[in-house]
Each structure stands twice: as C-alpha cells, then as structure tokens.
C-alpha cells in the first residue's frame, strides 16, 4: 500500500496548476491500493489549501509559513511531515520549483530519487518508474531500492488531474525548524515575467519561434499567439541571442511541453529542441529551409518565408 505526499507548488498565494500533474501521478501509483495527501507550504497556504480539497486526497496539510521561500526552509518541513505522517513516497511536479527541492528532500530522508518521471506502474507492490533519458531519445524503466522514495513528475506526461468531488479535510501543520543553511541564503525576490498569456505548461496552443525571427520575434509571433490564446515559446538560439527571454525556452533543458497544437516558426529542430516538444499532439513547422530537421517531426510543414507566411496566416485565421 502506497501512501503518497504531494508537495504543492505555491505561487503568489495560489496553488500552481503544475501540482495537478502530481495528483494524476498519485492516482496512478495508488491505483492498486493506497492514499495520497497534499501539503501546501508558504505564505497564504491556509487559504490556498482549499483549492485542492476536491481531488480525492486523504487530507490536505496547510503549513502557513511566509518565510518558506527557499528550499532550505521548505524541505525540512516536508521531511518532518513524511516521518510523522508515515508517508512512503514524496511527489512533486518537475517544474523549476520541483527540480530544485526534490533532491534536497531525498537526501534529507536518505530516500532514492527518480527525477522527471513520465510514467509509473505497480509491479507486485513495487513501483516501477519510466523516465526519459538522452533528451527523450530513450525511455528507462527504473526502481528505487529504498523504502522511502522521492519522485518528480513530468508535467507534460501526466495530464492535469480533474476534480473528483468530495472534500478532503484540511489540517493545519507547523513548519519544522529550517536547515542551518537557511541562515546563509537570502531570498531577494522573484522577477516574474509579466504576461497575459497562458503558461507554457498549460497552454492548448504554443507558438514558438527561432533565431530566424531576429528582432521581429514579438512583432511576428504576438499577433498569432493573441489570436489563438497561445503561449509563446522559443528555441535556445533565440533566447541566447536575446530575441526572447530565457523563461520561454522550450527544450531538453528548458520547458518540456505537449500542447494540442505547436507551431515551430523559424526553428531548425535541433535534438535539444525536439526533446521539449515532440510530445505535442499536432506540430506545424514553418521554415524556409526545406531540409530543416523540424520537418521530420512536423505533421504539417510549410516551406516559406516566415515574415510573409505568418502575417498571411494571421490574416486568413482572422477572416475565419
């Protein structure tokens, strides 16, 4: 029987939707018998806990702690709750928050860690995890040899959980004493990218651009993204060149996405970029180089000058 503790990601007093992927993981891992609970830690946790009471958790733990801005303060609380609550698996979504904190929790508990998993199955009472390696060019199945286990869950591979009804009880819990290291790290602030657009991890449509767009990155892509209520993504080359901010990067080492529709515009399709988007349902590539590798994964390819084709696409879509 698996007893899972999900660490919710809190952002400006709200539970991030990325957390719902960990709930999907917990439902799958516990399918053969088991329960899961959710812990919400941070400033505004008590209020935010109510956002996740409708998903079938045994309980939702709320740790009101406005100082919990760094993993040196959050991980000790998670570890203490794992011990006192008799949990045997800790799950967190593999966002930048999850990737930062999960190994720290694992080391603290002496637990094994399965990073960025894309699947889970119960093999005679033991959980077997599936995870992408080599930029998604192979998938490994693996097991942790420790009784206590920590996993981070790939958001694009575990569809966000829908509410299942019911009302999980909310319990207030106390923060644990921070690590000694917490005194040596100061949170100076979050510079959030201001955007009215959906998050890359949640968007139904993503419009991504490459270096070919140059200084016209936003000028060309924004009208299409606005029209489709799409998130905007970018290749590494576009980010490195400063045409797009780093948080837009899609790829092996950026965001991994799987929208219903992905536009790759002026993106050649390096292995590292493909690793971040080839799980998309429908891929459209627009590139003037007919030999670009992106066309090997695209459902629809258009060989064209993107400075002409994209405005034309916007015009035709607007015309209905």
């Amino acid at each position: 029987m698996t007893n899972i503790l999900i660490v919710a990601e809190l952002h400006e007093g709200k539970v991030r939707k990325s957390t719902h992927s960990s709930i999907t993981f917990a439902r799958q891992a516990g399918a053969a018998g088991g329960t899961f609970s959710i812990v919400v830690i941070g400033g505004g946790a008590a209020a935010a806990a109510a956002e996740v009471t409708g998903y079938g958790a045994a309980k939702v733990l709320a740790v009101e702690d406005p100082t919990a801005t760094v993993c040196e303060r959050i991980a000790p609380t998670v570890a203490a709750l794992v011990k006192s609550g008799g949990f045997d698996v800790v799950a967190v979504t593999a966002s930048s928050f999850g990737k930062d904190i999960a190994p720290r929790i694992a080391a603290k508990l002496g637990a094994g860690y399965a990073p960025d998993i894309s699947g889970v199955k119960d093999d005679g009472g033991k959980l077997v995890y599936r995870r992408p390696v080599y930029a998604g060019n192979a998938y490994a199945s693996c097991r942790l040899t420790t009784a206590l286990q920590v996993v981070s869950v790939r958001q694009s591979e575990f569809t966000a959980a829908e509410p299942s009804g019911g009302a999980s009880p909310v319990e207030a819990a106390q923060p644990a004493a921070p690590d000694a290291a917490a005194a040596r790290v100061e949170f100076l602030g979050l510079e959030a990218a201001k955007s009215e657009r959906p998050d890359l991890g949640e968007a139904r449509v993503i419009v991504s651009g490459g270096r070919a767009l140059k200084e016209k990155f936003a000028e060309v892509l924004d009208p299409l993204a606005n029209l489709l209520n799409a998130a905007v993504g970018a290749s590494r080359a576009a980010c490195d060149a400063g045409y797009a901010p780093p948080e837009l990067q899609v790829g092996q080492t950026g965001r991994v996405v799987a929208p219903q529709l992905y536009f790759a515009i002026g993106i050649s399709g390096a292995i590292q970029h493909l690793a971040g988007m080839k799980g998309s349902k429908v891929i459209v590539a627009v590139n003037k180089d007919a030999e670009a590798p992106i066309f090997q994964v695209a459902d629809y390819g258009l060989v064209a000058d993107l400075f002409v084709a994209i405005p034309e696409l916007v015009k035709q879509l607007q015309a209905g």
Binding site: F187, L188, A193, G201, P246, E247
Partner: peptide
C-alpha cells in the same frame, strides 16, 4: 536563477 516564469534572485553566503 532562471526559473519557470521569470528569475529568482538569491544571495548565498
């Protein structure tokens, strides 16, 4: 730090 949706600034001793 480059994080999803922006930058987090830390000072570590």
């Amino acid at each position: 730090r480059e994080v999803d949706g922006g930058t987090i600034n830390l000072k570590v001793t």
